[in-house]
């Protein structure tokens, strides 16, 4: 797979003035208190609807609006949570499924992509709603910042090399600079590249991400001051994100074929989806991992309004053989 192949996937806007009809059988979303999660759900004209109640948000099922069936569990990992959910609702291979990742946490987005392949889903529509603004701009906290551990996401653990001299860490950096710092600390020895969302979802958001990143520049290391270590992909485009990751990885592996590569999706959910797509397309059984800083809890409400909505038509059939 080359980096251009990702551009064959289809991304398109969704109108905020009409219902979204696409012959879907099942709609799945993860609930949180941000406006856009419910606004997105209101646009979807599907009868069978589920709210995933992610334990990290700390909601009771009774807190959720009754516009969809709530689902929660005390699974050990995000992968297990989603695995159990899909097991509960039955054979998803036979359904046309619509998944809104707006309320998902990034590690769930990553796990979701792998699980859909594991569940023999060939095609699926994923949607995402952009906020009008984040509540406190670059000061917005998406987690309680109590990082319990930085570890690989199950299913994205890689086959690593004992030679760690040329390890590379790609930080898809967002507002939560503390999380960026924790991951950078965990792979202190690795060369770091930061992938920023540009174009960002709102014009000021790119600048705000840079400001946030600058606050932890000392932890990131000398690369934080070198523009050559900054890469860019649109904040709302998983496919260009995957393509950019592909380019970075190929360039690094030309020089260091055995190097360990770590990717950490700390920015938007579309970029997290892009990280997963790149991994599943090019990295199974290589020295590549997706790393995530697991926090005790995550903010229930981080944004206001719904500015734009996007659909991403995912195709997984060709990726199954690579796993």
């Amino acid at each position: 797979m080359t980096n251009d192949d990702y551009l064959l996937y289809r991304k398109g806007p969704l109108s905020l003035n009409s219902s979204w009809v696409g012959g879907w059988d099942t709609f799945v979303s993860a609930f949180n208190s941000s406006d856009r999660v419910q606004l997105m759900a209101n646009h979807v004209a599907v009868k069978e609807r589920y709210w995933l109640n992610l334990p990290e948000y700390g909601f009771k099922n009774s807190d959720l609006p009754n516009t969809a069936t709530p689902y929660t569990s005390n699974a050990d990992s995000e992968f297990e949570f989603l695995q159990e959910f899909f097991l509960k609702i039955g054979d998803i291979k036979k359904r046309r499924i619509l998944i809104d990742i707006t309320g998902f946490l990034n590690h769930y987005v990553v796990a979701l992509a792998k699980l859909l392949i594991e569940q023999d889903v060939d095609e699926c529509t994923i949607i995402y709603g952009e906020p009008v603004r984040y509540l406190k701009s670059e000061q917005t906290q998406f987690s309680d910042r109590s990082v319990m551990s930085v570890r690989q996401i199950v299913g994205f653990e890689g086959v690593h090399s004992t030679d760690t001299k040329a390890d590379l860490l790609i930080l898809a950096s967002g507002y939560d600079a503390r999380l960026v710092a924790e991951v950078a600390n965990n792979k202190e020895h690795a060369t770091k590249i930061q992938l920023f969302g540009l174009p960002s979802m709102r014009p000021d958001m790119y600048q705000e991400s840079l400001l946030a990143s600058a606050t932890v520049a000392d932890t990131i290391g000398p690369e934080a001051a070198h523009r050559g270590s900054f890469k860019y992909a649109p904040a709302n485009d998983p496919f260009i994100t995957a393509s950019e990751l592909s380019k970075i990885s190929v360039q690094h592996r030309i020089k260091h074929p055995l190097a360990n590569l770590y990717i950490s999706p700390l920015s938007t959910k579309p970029q997290a989806l892009g990280c997963a797509l790149f991994y599943l397309s090019e990295c199974p059984k290589t020295a590549t991992s997706i790393l995530y800083p697991y926090c005790r809890s995550y903010a229930r409400e981080t944004s206001e309004g719904l500015a734009r909505a996007w659909r991403y038509d995912m195709e997984f059939a060709h990726l199954r053989a690579r796993l």
Partner: peptide
């Protein structure tokens, strides 16, 4: 010389 951090130690836990 080796770094124990390179072992990604969390892989060796849980998972049933």
């Amino acid at each position: 010389y080796f770094k124990c951090g390179s072992l990604n130690a969390y892989r060796f836990s849980g998972k049933g």
